[in-house]
Design a protein around this nucleic acid. Structure first.
Lengths: 218, 218
DNA sequence: GCAAGGTGTCAGAGTTATTTCAGGATGGCG
DNA sequence: CGCCATCCTGAAATAACTCTGACACCTTGC
């Protein structure tokens, strides 16, 4: 159960908050205040997960991430980035991070992402279903009434986001944040929703919630 | 789109700087110099966001935050704390604040955090019930006797206002202040009450209190 | 290095929501 | 009962949001 998570964060209150929250969530927590300490800790207690602040004095989060990967870290890395630092996020993913959360973050979001990362590590293949459709997240195909529909990468990502929370509205902002890493025009979401509606052959499956976003409907 | 932000700060120069900067950023700004005034202001113009100084004479920022939450404030609260007051930050988050910025702060950071808070706020789902109807405040839908009724944004806002205080009269002035930011013809409230009565299929649910306003009734 | 398909942007058409206005209906009161 | 203030509602203008086709760029496979 208790996955080992390593927290790397120089801001003490934030770090303590993470320690407490993740500890309460059942994770086995270690933490470090700077990059050097993080590398040392990772050395002798290979963590399953790493929560990593990008902006730190000394060794930056990006560097730490790269070094950890070089040392053979296979676990998931979750980056904490500033809201306006779109650049960092892209470079972070290049550096080997698996996901990121924008500061300031809701602790619940961090927990959710961490759980998603452990899941992803265990079994690469995943099938998500709702209202008669099933998405295979590795092959990017959808089963619907015996028929198989092939999706492109983006189409699949968007559908995945909708399927993971079938009863909540997905806002354009959130979609762009999660799929396009904050770097895209809002309209792009509409564009892909349109494609999904056509490909899935059911314009009513994805309902538009006016002024808010999109939601799956049976 | 002009979120309403309430600034609570006893230091006049700092307060004015915040007013100007946030105003220029497109926020609709109200401000108060002490806790008491803040609570009074929040009363009639429920802000979407609150920027709150922790260290104030009289009612402390922590107290103000707690009181606001008790009064049903759902918007984001951003605290301003001193650099060395590590304790305050943790306690602030406990008191219901969503984030904090350390003084002295870069105004850009405050703006960035506020934008982050508005985004987070929108995804937060809530369900309000009274007399057999349930409103979902994110999808703007009402459940009533197994049926689902879709509302528009304004309709939902008005119903939400009624549902949050089911046994008190909602005056047209209050409704216009809180939904239309004070800028609309009085008649607009009547117009939306009419729509709600028709859409909800029960003309008696919202009762007119002659010369005063409207109230929910079972 | 070419072709095919995927991706992101834009602009404008199309759709839906919002707000106002004006006149009729209704309730309160002498 | 009759008057006045208040409330209700249809229609129409305005504003906001969503959808879609066309296009350019990029990536991938061959």
């Amino acid at each position: 159960m208790g996955e080992r998570v390593l927290i790397v964060e120089d801001d003490a209150p934030v770090r303590r908050m993470l320690e407490r929250s993740l500890g309460a969530e059942g994770f086995e927590v270690r933490s470090a205040a700077d990059g050097g300490a993080a590398l040392a800790l990772a050395e002798d207690s290979a963590p399953d997960l790493v929560v990593l602040d990008v902006a730190m004095p000394g060794l930056s989060g990006l560097d730490v991430c790269r070094r950890l990967r070089e040392k053979g870290l296979t676990g998931g890395v979750l980056m904490l980035t500033a809201r306006d630092a779109v650049e960092d996020r892209v470079r972070g993913l290049d550096a080997g991070a698996d996901d990121y959360v924008v500061k300031p973050f809701a602790i619940a979001e961090v927990v959710a992402r961490l759980h998603a990362l452990t899941r992803r590590g265990r079994d690469r293949s995943e099938r998500l279903s709702f209202a008669g459709i099933t998405l295979d997240t590795t092959t990017n195909t959808v089963e619907r009434g015996g028929k198989t529909i092939e999706l492109t990468a983006r189409e699949a990502e968007l559908l995945e986001l909708l399927l993971r929370d079938p009863r909540t509205v997905l806002s354009r902002e959130t979609a762009i944040e999660r799929i396009w890493h904050g770097a895209a025009v809002e309209n792009v979401v509409d564009r892909y929703v349109a494609r999904l509606r056509r490909k899935l052959g059911d314009p009513l499956l994805i309902r538009t919630v006016w002024g808010v976003g999109f939601i799956l409907e049976a």
